[in-house]
C-alpha cells in the first residue's frame, strides 16, 4: 500500500505547489494570465448561451409591445436630450466660475463599457472578471461603476481581461461621505459573505447624525475613487466601541448580485 512511487508522486505535487506559491508576484501574475487565457474560447460560448434565451424571446415578442417600447424610449430620449442641454449649460457656467475664481479645471470622466464574463468561483472572495484588459488601456485601481453607482475597482489586469474587486470584499476599502449637514466621512469595509447588497460604513464620528435614506457617495480621499460617485443609502446606524465611533449599514445602489455590464472610469 505504501509504495515508494506513491511517496515520490506525493513529494512531486508538494514541490510543485510550494514552488508556485513562492514565485514572485510578477511571475504569478503572468502564469495566472496564461492559465486564465485557456478559458477565453469558453467565455464567448457562455456569452452566446446566455444571450440565446433573450434572443429567442425577442423573436416571439408581439409587434404591439415593440411599438409601445419604441414610443416609451422616444419619450425617454426626448427627456434625456433636454437634461443634456441643461447639464451642458451648468457645466459651462461651472467652468466660467472656476476660471473666475482661479480654481483647477475639472476633467470630464472617460468611461469604457465592459462585459462581466465570470464571477469568482471561491465563496470567500467577491470579485468578477471583465472583458477589457491592458490592450484597452486598463490599469490597476481604476474605479468600476454602473449607472446606479459604484461597483469596485480593478485589482489585476491581463491582456484581454481584468479582475474587479467588488465593494464588500476585504480588499476593496472605499472612503465614503454621507450627504448630510455635517458631511460625515467613513470607510466602507467588508460585509457578511451572504448579502451582497449591504456593506458596513465604519469609523464615522461618534457625533454623526445619521438617518435612514441619507445618500452615501465617494469622498475622493485615498486617491483611487474620484469624489461624487454614488454608493448607496444609509439603512441604520449604531454606536460601537463604547461610543468611540459610529458604524452604519449601507444599502448599495448597484446590484452586485446580477452584474452584466459595467463602466470602467478613467479619471
Amino acid at each position: 500500500m505504501f509504495k515508494q512511487k506513491n511517496y515520490f508522486a506525493l513529494g512531486a505535487v508538494i514541490v510543485v505547489a510550494v514552488l508556485i506559491l513562492s514565485l514572485p508576484t510578477s511571475a504569478t501574475t503572468r502564469l495566472k494570465s496564461a492559465l486564465g487565457s485557456w478559458f477565453l474560447p469558453l467565455f464567448g460560448l457562455a456569452d452566446t448561451a446566455q444571450r440565446l434565451p433573450a434572443d429567442l424571446a425577442d423573436t416571439v415578442l408581439p409587434r404591439r409591445e415593440l411599438l409601445q417600447q419604441i414610443a416609451k424610449l422616444r419619450d425617454e430620449n426626448q427627456q434625456l436630450k433636454e437634461q443634456q442641454f441643461q447639464t451642458a449649460a451648468i457645466a459651462r457656467e461651472n467652468e466660467q466660475l472656476r476660471t473666475a475664481l482661479g480654481w483647477q479645471k475639472q476633467a470630464p470622466w472617460k468611461l469604457k463599457l465592459a462585459n462581466v464574463v465570470t464571477r469568482d468561483p471561491a465563496n470567500w472572495w467577491r470579485t468578477a472578471q471583465i472583458d477589457l484588459g491592458s490592450r484597452d488601456g486598463l490599469r490597476e485601481n481604476l474605479p468600476v461603476l454602473t449607472a446606479s453607482g459604484l461597483v469596485g475597482r480593478i485589482s489585476s489586469v491581463k491582456q484581454t481581461s481584468a479582475q474587479v474587486v467588488l465593494i464588500g470584499d476585504p480588499n476593496c476599502r472605499v472612503s465614503a461621505l454621507v450627504e448630510n449637514a455635517a458631511r460625515d466621512t467613513g470607510v466602507l469595509l467588508a460585509s457578511g459573505p451572504l448579502d451582497t447588497s449591504l456593506v458596513q460604513l465604519t469609523y464615522l464620528a461618534s457625533s454623526a447624525n445619521l438617518k435612514s435614506g441619507q445618500s452615501v457617495i465617494t469622498s475622493g480621499l485615498g486617491g483611487i475613487f474620484p469624489k461624487g460617485i454614488p454608493i448607496g443609502q444609509i439603512v441604520d446606524a449604531r454606536s460601537v466601541e463604547f461610543g468611540l465611533y459610529t458604524e452604519a449599514r449601507v444599502k448599495l445602489n448597484a446590484n452586485l448580485g446580477s452584474l452584466e455590464q459595467v463602466w470602467v472610469l478613467f479619471p
Partner: peptide, 22 residues
C-alpha cells in the same frame, strides 16, 4: 488533477495561484 484543477481554479479566482493544489 490536483495540480491542474487547483491551478485552473486559482486562475479564475482571487486566490493566490497554487493554493488549491494541496
Amino acid at each position: 488533477l490536483a495540480i491542474f484543477g487547483g491551478l485552473w481554479f486559482d486562475a479564475l479566482s482571487a486566490n493566490p495561484l497554487g493554493i488549491s493544489i494541496l
